[in-house]
Computed example of a mutant assay.
Amino acid sequence: MNDIDWDKGKWTTPPLHEAIKEDGLYVTARENSDAWRVTSYGFIHESEHALLAPFEQDSAVEVSFFLNFAAQFDQAGIFIRTDETTWIKAGIEWSDGQESLGAVVTRGVSDWSLCPTPGWNGRLVTVRASRSGDAVTIRAKVDEEPWRLVRVAPLDPDAVVSAGPFCCAPTRSGLTVHFTSWRTAPPDASLHPHS
């Protein structure tokens, strides 16, 4: 794996505050920050704080952060962007009183999937996006537990794509996320590593 320097990325929307320290990047989200397009809610939000660098074909990107959420829709993880209407965000979101692992895949309009992850709060979460062929495979884990498959989504193999850590605070002020690493690696060997 190769670490990506925090100062190599470019923000989609600058956060309220950012600080690079010896133990990682601290990002304070702006209140009402979010990424969503149309589905069910009817609105378009393009105010996420995503720190992006090129995401090449046949590679993987990993982001790790400490989970410390408490308000509705607090979220952090990895953001993958082709353009303003084609993007993916995946990671942990605090929804209806609990932390959940999920993804929003957006191709013109957004979809959303969530799975509760009780006991993950206060621990180190890693989200991995692996790009190969016509897809991106997203996995996540907490601490040193096994990887969980989150999503397989289509991704044009010829598209110019960027990816990196993101966070949002749709309902409150004061959310600060401590990201500990941002790395590139070879892509996953297969969709089903144990088969």
Score class of each variant (00 low, 15 high):
Met1Ile: 09
Asn2Leu: 10
Asp3Ala: 15
Asp3Ile: 01
Asp7Ala: 12
Lys8Ile: 00
Lys10Glu: 15
Thr13Phe: 04
Pro14Glu: 15
Pro14Tyr: 03
Pro14Val: 12
Glu18Asn: 04
Glu18Arg: 11
Lys21Gln: 14
Lys21Tyr: 02
Glu22Ile: 02
Thr28His: 02
Thr28Phe: 03
Glu31Thr: 08
Asn32Thr: 14
Ser33Arg: 06
Trp36Cys: 06
Val38Glu: 14
Tyr41Asp: 02
Tyr41Val: 04
Ser47Trp: 02
Ser47Cys: 03
Ala50Trp: 07
Leu52Phe: 07
Leu52Tyr: 06
Pro54Ser: 12
Pro54Gly: 11
Pro54Tyr: 12
Phe55Ala: 10
Gln57His: 13
Val63Ala: 05
Ser64Gln: 11
Ser64Leu: 06
Phe65Ser: 02
Ala70Lys: 12
Gln72Pro: 00
Phe73Met: 14
Ala76Lys: 07
Ala76Glu: 08
Ile78Glu: 02
Thr82Ile: 15
Asp83Lys: 03
Asp83Ser: 10
Glu84Gly: 01
Thr85Cys: 04
Ile88Pro: 01
Gly91Phe: 06
Ile92Pro: 05
Gly97Phe: 11
Gly97Lys: 07
Gln98Lys: 15
Glu99Phe: 00
Val105Cys: 11
Thr106Tyr: 10
Arg107Gln: 13
Gly108Asn: 11
Val109Cys: 01
Val109Tyr: 08
Ser110Thr: 12
Ser113Thr: 15
Cys115Tyr: 08
Pro116Tyr: 08
Pro116Gly: 10
Gly119Phe: 11
Gly119Asn: 10
Trp120Gln: 04
Arg123Met: 11
Leu124Glu: 14
Val127Arg: 02
Val127Trp: 05
Ser130Ala: 09
Ser130His: 05
Ser132Asn: 09
Gly133Val: 08
Asp134Pro: 02
Asp134Val: 00
Val136Gln: 06
Thr137Cys: 10
Thr137Gly: 00
Thr137Arg: 13
Ala140Thr: 08
Val142Ser: 10
Asp143Cys: 09
Asp143Gln: 12
Leu149Trp: 10
Leu155Thr: 01
Pro157Arg: 10
Asp158Cys: 05
Val161Ser: 05
Ser162Gln: 15
Gly164Ala: 09
Phe166Thr: 03
Phe166Ile: 07
Phe166Cys: 12
Phe166His: 08
Cys167Ser: 14
Cys168Asp: 09
Ala169Gln: 06
Thr171Gly: 01
Thr171Leu: 07
Gly174Ser: 07
Thr180His: 08
Trp182Met: 05
Pro187Val: 09
Asp188Pro: 00
Asp188Gly: 01
Ser190Gln: 10
Leu191Cys: 01
His192Val: 13
Pro193Gln: 09
His194Trp: 14
